[in-house]
Nucleic acid binder design. Structure first.
Length: 374
RNA sequence: GCGGAAUUGGUGAAGUGGUUAACACGCCGGAUUGUGGCUCCGGUAUGCAUGGGUUCGAUCCCCAUAUUUCGCC
């Protein structure tokens, strides 16, 4: 059975919505945060540890798995779930963002993107058909359309021809998609421009996907206002009975703002990347455990957190591990940070039920940024 | 006891008679939003063992002292 989305409730004062996704015969509530496991592993965590954070869907990446170990290896293993021993739902990103963010000397044409890969510089070409074929073989539960992800600095004229091409790519991908157990999502682009977002959303919806994403946000220093505009200009044109996914976001405040604007699911590398760099997300803001003030702080990172790290370890100990580059430190912080964002979505769902999400946001900001914020 | 060599920040060290003493590690901060990277970006010796001297000017030259180290007896 492919993905099913049900809208359960709309919040009274905002566009926030409570919903549920049934996928892989498992049901998860939205808003939801999806941890990122690019190379078929949420960095430093075992699948059991991922489950313990109460994560539902996780991400894996077409581009990376295509290069290593190759989609045929994964298919031989019996698909991504068996390969990585994760029985929860898996979404694969299409590779569009990776081509944009890390490939060298890329050449974007109607056919697809030619580029040199980041591992050995081999010349490669990724097309919509190729991306979908790889994802079909990986056998993820949700595949993403192959899109161009232009930088935030792209001008209007460039964006216009880019989103038109991305729509043509989406159509081509949909035509070759042939995994009956796999949902396929379309991606709305268009930068911070109302007209372009509207056009991109309407044309993408016409192709009738199983869910819709808002892409092209949180790129290379784009400011938050531009991101919120991109969401505001996209959401009205997306069907209410389909799930909405804001790609690559993110920061706690951006998840809250996204939910308020009608987004259902999010993914971001932030919790795991911050963890590897020694940072912890907490109700009272981000902590940098490398700071010397935590050297003899024998309290948990967050007293109220129910994660494995906070239940068993102190700031002092985690700091020590981070300072010594011990992988267990990154693991404990990854568990904590992922759990923090998932708990945030749990709290947001509760706020939607209670129709008090604006109060929730206000209270969150007060705690996270301090009294004098805004 | 005699002779030689060395002495630069928390550490390993580069260096020059003339504005701000290289670099690395460490340390102290910061960054991080569809993840190549234990990553990236800042800051970190008002000082060159101590005391004299030469010089317009010395971390750099000379002398003495101290410490370390090597060789010989």
């Amino acid at each position: 059975m492919k993905l099913k989305y049900e809208l359960l409730k709309e919040e009274k004062n905002t566009k926030a919505r409570l919903g549920q996704i049934t996928i892989r015969e498992q049901t998860y509530q939205t808003p939801m945060f999806m941890p990122v496991g690019t190379l078929a592993t949420v960095k430093t965590l075992s699948p059991e540890e991922v489950k313990e954070t109460k994560a539902g869907i996780i991400l894996a990446n077409t581009y990376h798995l295509w290069l290593r170990p190759g989609e045929d290896v994964v298919a031989l293993a019996g698909g991504l779930h068996k390969f990585m021993n994760y029985d929860g739902p898996i979404l694969t990103d299409s590779g569009g963002f990776q081509v944009f963010s890390l490939a060298n000397s890329k050449d974007i044409t109607e056919e697809g993107v030619r580029f040199k890969n980041h591992l050995n510089g081999d010349n490669l070409i990724l097309t919509p058909e190729k991306s979908i074929a790889i994802q079909n073989k990986l056998d993820s539960d949700i595949a993403m359309s192959f899109d161009e992800c232009p930088p935030a600095s792209a001008d209007y004229d460039y964006l216009k021809q880019s989103i038109e091409r991305t729509i043509r790519w989406a159509k081509r991908g949909k035509e070759v998609h042939n995994n009956p157990n796999q949902a396929l999502f379309g991606i709305v682009q268009g930068g911070p421009h109302e007209k372009l977002r509207k056009f991109s959303a309407e044309e993408t919806v016409k192709l009738d996907f199983d869910g819709y994403s808002i892409g092209g946000v949180a790129n290379d220093g784009e400011d938050k206002e531009a991101m919120y505009k991109a969401i505001d200009y996209s959401i009205p044109y997306l069907p209410k009975d389909k799930v909405r996914y804001l790609m690559g976001v993110g920061e706690p405040i951006d998840i809250i703002e996204g939910v308020i604007r009608g987004v259902d699911i999010f993914d971001c590398v932030l919790p795991t990347r911050l963890a590897r760099h020694g940072n912890a997300l907490t109700k009272y803001g981000k902590l940098n455990l490398k700071n010397s003030k935590y050297k003899t702080d024998f309290t948990p990172i967050d007293e109220s957190c129910d994660c494995y790290c906070c239940q068993h370890y102190t700031k002092s100990y985690v700091k020590h591990l981070i300072n010594c580059n011990e992988t267990f430190g990154a693991r404990l912080l990854s568990i904590h940070n992922i759990r923090f964002l998932i708990k945030l979505t749990e709290d947001l769902r509760e706020a939607i039920k209670n129709d008090n999400i604006l109060e929730f946001k206000k209270e969150f900001i007060k705690n996270y940024y301090g009294e004098d914020y805004e």
